[in-house]
Design a protein around this nucleic acid. Structure first.
Lengths: 109, 109
DNA sequence: GTGAAGCATCGATATATTTGAATATATAGA
DNA sequence: TCTATATATTCAAATATATCGATGCTTCAC
């Protein structure tokens, strides 16, 4: 593990961690990872107001986590890089173990 | 990629994403991943007030991301599970590519 | 038991974030 | 051009978070 600098941590925070720091945005990432989806579809899936979805999509887009492509009046969003979900899936497995008492913190006893 | 439920996303958010959503906490995770460190040392490393460090450590501790062990009057913190930094390192590599124009979003052109 | 060191908690302030109603903008079709 | 549809933006309110001084608690040495 290469030591990390404070500047690198700030970039990591600004471009990724801040982006995945909301449950709605996590759901959005999973939804657009399956296939490109437009805002209307995402609004139905998330069950929140459309401006709220646009707000979260903007945060994801500004950080480069998702990409937007217009098709007529619709705008389709998709995941920009598979590593984003790859990392989240590792954390998801960790949490799953945590919930079933299999995470390493529990095994230390 | 197994579909994720809304409840699972909420757990993922509560136990991990919320925990790594602050640059100071990211630094703390990297510091305690090297070796167990006590609060005084972490306070010097982070260059913030001691209550601020304790606050962040509490957030990490409550989520199970770090574990605390007392030794005399000191309390040493360490990383609870290597997968946490493993995932963060993937995101770190992604951001590094993003900064040098090598991330997949750029390569789509 | 007393004092000191190390850490946690409390309380207050400043700042940031989430949310949605209202509104603006952009595209397509008639 | 006019209208409908889809999305973005603005604005305000509510909520959450970060920070640190003051203080409390625990442990150890004497």
């Amino acid at each position: 593990m290469t030591p990390i600098s404070e500047e690198e941590v700030l970039l990591l925070h600004r471009y990724v961690c801040e982006g995945i720091a909301d449950p709605k945005r996590l759901m959005l990432l999973y939804y657009v990872a399956e296939r490109p989806r437009n805002v209307s579809e995402l609004t139905e899936l998330l069950d929140v107001a459309q401006p709220t979805v646009s707000h979260h999509l903007r945060i994801l887009r500004e950080r480069g986590l998702v990409v937007a492509e217009r098709d007529g009046t619709s705008i389709f969003y998709s995941l920009s890089d598979p590593r984003i979900l790859q990392a989240i899936e590792i954390l998801r497995a960790y949490v799953a173990d945590l919930m079933t008492g299999r995470a390493s913190v529990v095994n230390k006893a």
